[in-house]
């Protein structure tokens, strides 16, 4: 009962403690190494304001960036903890799935949604690289199939944004079969006479690049995005030669005739709206016709 026991700890420490401060307030640009404040980075669409380096973007941010007023409806697809091979490496596959679901808040490595872009209905499926490296699983195949079928139902263009290291090894041969499955899905879209546009995001490799990703009616990419079939390391080990610095970058693919254009992130939405308008509205609009009649 003396003043020593009634001593109240000063609260200053609590005031300056890190509790309320998110640890990702500042991001270091992996290209120019400048520090960027998170709000600035978000408003700049994850592009470094100092050197214009395009950082990776998760699926949700992609959808928010592209749809009008960031409004869209997610297309549900069947998931469940599918583990057809009962796969276990250093961890059980089902545990990995659970961890990645908790980490990303997504069911699998893709989000498919429908909404409007420039006032026109579109279906967009965006890969989430944060979810097991955006790897192609049965569930991602299912999502692409659902997206394709919805596009046909709504007579809407399909936009797919791959960002993937390739197949999901934990699903073995069934992951490989998604290559055929996704190609069959987009074939339905193409045969319905609808545009199929691919935005090849960083990175697009392996079974993803060697299937639906390289079959776009129009293929767009972003500055510096890495796109290829085999990874740089594997190639280097095979041929034992130095690879050019810009090898497998979007600009390199553009130079070699593999894609149509490299567009900065800020220009993406207007460019896509312009393309969709050209592909969807094929005849002069009503007003123009009226003037002509005069």
């Amino acid at each position: 009962m003396n003043w020593l026991r009634d001593f109240v700890k000063p609260k200053i420490r609590a005031l300056v403690s890190k509790k309320n401060v998110p640890d990702d307030l500042w991001t270091k640009c992996s290209n120019c190494e400048q520090m960027i404040f998170h709000r600035e980075l978000a408003s700049n669409l994850q592009v470094c304001p100092h050197c214009s380096y395009h950082m990776r973007m998760n699926a949700t941010s992609r959808l928010q960036m592209l749809f009008d007023n960031a409004e869209y409806r997610i297309i549900e697809f069947p998931t469940g903890l599918a583990d057809p091979l009962k796969f276990k490496d250093t961890k059980k596959y089902t545990d990995r799935l659970k961890e990645n679901r908790a980490k990303t808040n997504n069911q699998d490595a893709i989000i498919a949604a429908h909404g409007k872009m420039g006032g026109v209905g579109v279906v967009i499926a965006a890969f989430d690289f944060d979810f097991m490296g955006g790897s192609m699983s049965i569930a991602t195949g299912e999502a692409l199939l659902s997206a394709s079928r919805l596009a046909i139902l709504q007579q809407a263009p399909l936009i797919v944004i791959p960002a993937s290291g390739g197949a999901r090894m934990q699903e073995g041969i069934l992951s490989l079969m998604q290559m055929a499955r996704t190609v069959a899905a987009i074939q339905e879209v193409k045969e319905a006479g609808l545009p199929y546009i691919v935005l090849l995001a960083d990175p697009t490799y392996g079974g993803v690049s060697a299937s639906f990703a390289m079959l776009g009616d129009i293929a767009i990419s972003e500055p510096g995005a890495m796109i290829g079939f085999a990874g740089r390391r594997v190639i280097q080990e095979t041929i034992r030669e130095k690879l050019p610095n810009d090898f497998q970058k979007a600009e390199y693919l553009l130079d070699h005739g593999m894609i149509d254009m490299v567009v900065t992130r800020r220009e993406l939405r207007p460019m896509m709206i312009k393309i969709l308008s050209l592909l969807q509205n094929k005849t002069p609009s009503a007003q123009v016709l009226a003037i002509k009649k005069k």
């Binding site: 290559m179 190609v183 299937s211 990703a213 079939f229 190639i235 030669e241 090898f247 070699h256």
Partner: peptide, 21 residues
């Protein structure tokens, strides 16, 4: 498929995708 510089440059991924198609 061959993982080489020339193969990549000439579109290995595209060639496989088109074969599947």
């Amino acid at each position: 498929a061959y993982p080489g510089l020339d193969a990549e440059t000439r579109g290995q991924a595209e060639a496989i995708a088109r074969s599947i198609e």
